[in-house]
Design a protein around this nucleic acid. Sequence first.
DNA 1: ACATTAGTTAAAGCCGACTTTAACTCATAG
DNA 2: CTATGAGTTAAAGTCGGCTTTAACTAATGT
Lengths: 147, 147
Amino acid sequence: MTIKAAIIEKHYRIGEFAAKTGLSGPTLRYYEKEGLVKPHRSDNGLRYYTDADADWIKFLLHLKGTGMTIEQLKQYVTWRAEGDATITKRLQLLKNVRRGFLQEFEELQHSMTILTDKIDWYQGKVDGHISDNEDFANYLASLNHEE
Amino acid sequence: MTIKAAIIEKHYRIGEFAAKTGLSGPTLRYYEKEGLVKPHRSDNGLRYYTDADADWIKFLLHLKGTGMTIEQLKQYVTWRAEGDATITKRLQLLKNVRRGFLQEFEELQHSMTILTDKIDWYQGKVDGHISDNEDFANYLASLNHEE
DNA sequence: ACATTAGTTAAAGCCGACTTTAACTCATAG
DNA sequence: CTATGAGTTAAAGTCGGCTTTAACTAATGT
């Protein structure tokens, strides 16, 4: 006797799916118009999305979070639709994205250092253990921090 | 005999200053209109900037780099112009900025992890040590990485 | 003296990424 | 059967952060 699991794929209509993904309905329609996501349609013509679509949106948002624009995402999606022949292209694109992101990341870390230094400097002024005439440039220099 | 160093403060006109700061001339004028920077004027009416202005711009760009908007920067500048009475306000503002930035930073790190996992997964497919039917969700699960 | 390059202003334009509007249809509880 | 809430479309609007344009004046090299 064969056991056959009847896995019923859950259908999410746009409102529920919007809540699930954190995007708005209009944003989902916008992404669809840009070709980033392809929801399905039930017989009555209403969109529905699945858990697989949710996974895809999550991944998409991570890529977006690394600084990819909608245009770049479209390119990725286009290649994805073309199948395995474009895997190296996609790999190369993602590597380029990572390179840019790492660079940006270092700048963010530097800005973070400067921000923290400034906070410490203000705190020192408030607490009175940095003298009134010590300016921020000197303070940075004393920490060997640039800019 | 008193030695008096005649320190001549270098004046940068907008073009030179733009090159120095990496901003464009129009952007410098825009920042001025928004009250973020106050260049000086020579007798002929032309703007000039100093090294102190450059330091200020650099700091401003770091704040901007942490996600502060022009409006928030304006608030900071306004308080700065009001003098020491607003130091605690500025300190509080910068601490809030840091809190938001740290949060954003963690999300960026997570996106980075997912991006790298995807790159490794593609690389595995290309190199043939990840089987054709291993999907990315499984691969993430195997790494104990979420989403 | 004059051509070229740099600076001046106010106002309009642009771009990406959505959001809002308008005018409509569909779904469903009472 | 009808009120209400959700979904449909295409098109226009918004917003932040500049950039471009237009019409002009100032500075500088030959």
